[in-house]
């Protein structure tokens, strides 16, 4: 528990203390909008932005791009000789870097169209990757949807499979708009059943959403009660 073996005003103590102040500042919004909340909200955005930038530089841009490009990973021995020759293939990085810099053209009214080139490139590669991703993700789902309606020796499993296939087909019929539906027809009725089944699904989502949001609150109160409050006794 916080407080045990923790020196007052040590770094660890300040971490918990400031964490509690930050949490209470945000909770103050529940009473009403106030400058205390706004100040901490903006502080959070600033810290998160700074953190995200350094994370990209630290984990990718510096070790995998700039360091080999600038030859900073080459070692100079005490006698002045290099540990290995500079690999000129790294100069090819300048091509994607220059292309990526076109993003900043969006800041110019006259040349903003250049940013569309790099945005288009990003959309293009995402589209190309989508082929592979969609089929790899979709096909196992499709195969799993074909279930036996009668399982010998297991009435429960047979019933479950029947409900499964009924729910799936009726829900898919609900979204099928190619042909005109006549009120009271088979397709309309099937679509109606599908709507009820989907309401069951949305009910599950609703219950799950409540659980998720409540968990966030429980964690914060757990911190305030067991760590922050413990600093003071």
């Amino acid at each position: 528990m916080a407080g045990e073996g923790m020196a007052f005003f040590s770094f660890a103590w300040w971490e918990i203390f400031l964490g509690g102040i930050s949490t209470l500042a945000v909770f103050s919004f529940l009473y009403r909008e106030n400058p205390f909340y706004r100040f901490f909200e903006h502080l959070y955005i600033g810290i998160a932005t700074g953190w995200g930038i350094i994370a990209a530089v630290r984990n990718f841009l510096w070790p995998r791009v700039f360091k080999p490009l600038l030859g900073a990973d080459l070692m100079v021995f005490p006698d002045g000789s290099l540990s290995q020759p500079y690999n000129q293939a790294y100069l090819l990085f300048l091509l994607p870097m220059s292309f990526g810099l076109l993003y900043y053209a969006i800041l110019s009214k006259r040349h903003s169209w250049l940013a569309q080139l790099v945005i288009g490139f990003e959309l293009g590669y995402a589209g190309g990757l989508a082929f592979k991703g969609t089929f790899i993700e979709l096909l196992p789902q499709l195969f799993d949807s074909f279930r036996p309606l009668y399982v010998p020796g297991s009435a429960a499993e047979s019933l479950a499979n029947i409900v499964f296939v009924l729910t799936l087909t009726s829900s898919m019929v609900y979204f099928f708009f190619t042909f005109k539906r006549t009120p009271g027809g088979i397709v309309s009725r099937c679509s109606g059943v599908g709507r009820w089944m989907m309401m069951g699904c949305f009910g599950a989502f609703f219950g799950s959403t409540i659980m998720a949001r409540m968990a966030l609150l429980v964690e914060r109160l757990d911190f305030l009660i067991h760590q922050w409050a413990a600093l003071f006794y």
Binding site: I136, E137, P140, Q141, F143, C201, S208, A212
Partner: peptide
């Protein structure tokens, strides 16, 4: 991850919001 990291066994930890979504992948053994 499901789409592009194929091969090793896949275990997932989701928030409660996405439990119904995760079930469709569990059902198909992805």
């Amino acid at each position: 991850w499901v789409q592009y990291f194929q091969g090793p066994l896949f275990l997932h930890g989701c928030t409660s919001v996405t439990i119904p979504e995760a079930f469709i992948y569990f059902s198909s053994k992805q």
